[in-house]
Amino acid sequence: MRSLPQQVPRLAIVFGVALGGLFVARGLLIPDTFGDRGHYRAAAVDSIAAQPVKFAGRAECAVCHDDVLKPHGAGNHRGVTCEVCHGPAQAHVLAPLEVKPSVVRKRELCTACHAFDPSRPLGFPQIDPVAHNPRAPCIGCHRPHTPEPPTPPEACSACHGHFARQKAVSPHAALTCETCHQAPPQHRTNPRAALPGKPESRTFCGQCHGTPETGVPQVEMESHGQPNLCWQCHYPHYPEIR
């Protein structure tokens, strides 16, 4: 067999050194735990898991503060855990006497949730912070651990302001909410547990709109829009027909 051209062994040495270097480097430099549980450094999971906790969690608070948490757990703020208002408390858990969580008296903390905002879900208790006893601390009237509305709102507009405002400028302004909606008393204290009703028949609207004597816009109740309920097409809080 003829010997290889001179170039081949020379190049082979260069490439061999390069490849060998790569393998040696791999052996030396790949972290120990890499690949133990997947294509990653398993030790990273442990170091992430070892990060310090800042929010202790309600269960930790319950260890000492059962006296507060028992009534709290039965009140309207039962879903609002301690650290929502008092801030992160793990430092307090670790050193109960040295570190004390904040006690909040500012209105801003309450209005973060309870200021009226049309984007908030319907029925969530909201107030207008400008109109509602401005500058009085909320906790003057409301017990934050077991809040009750001081008096359940008389007017529906306390919560359903946007409907009230629409209705106020509509042809239906003269009607009260109760004309169409019968709200069970429980709705005032626990809105989602007992929802108000709405008209369930066409004749309800027909009391006015199918009775010429009332002087409001009339429709032929028998033929118009059967078989739908009126409010399935017309928006009663701001009816389009004037």
Binding site: P5, Q6, Q7, V8, R10, L11, I13, V14
Partner: peptide, 18 residues
């Protein structure tokens, strides 16, 4: 040249074809 200084026709042919 990595010390590959062979300029024989065979070596040059290898350069060319490789």
């Amino acid at each position: 040249t990595l010390g590959a200084t062979d300029l024989s026709p065979r070596a040059l042919r290898f350069d060319e074809s490789a």
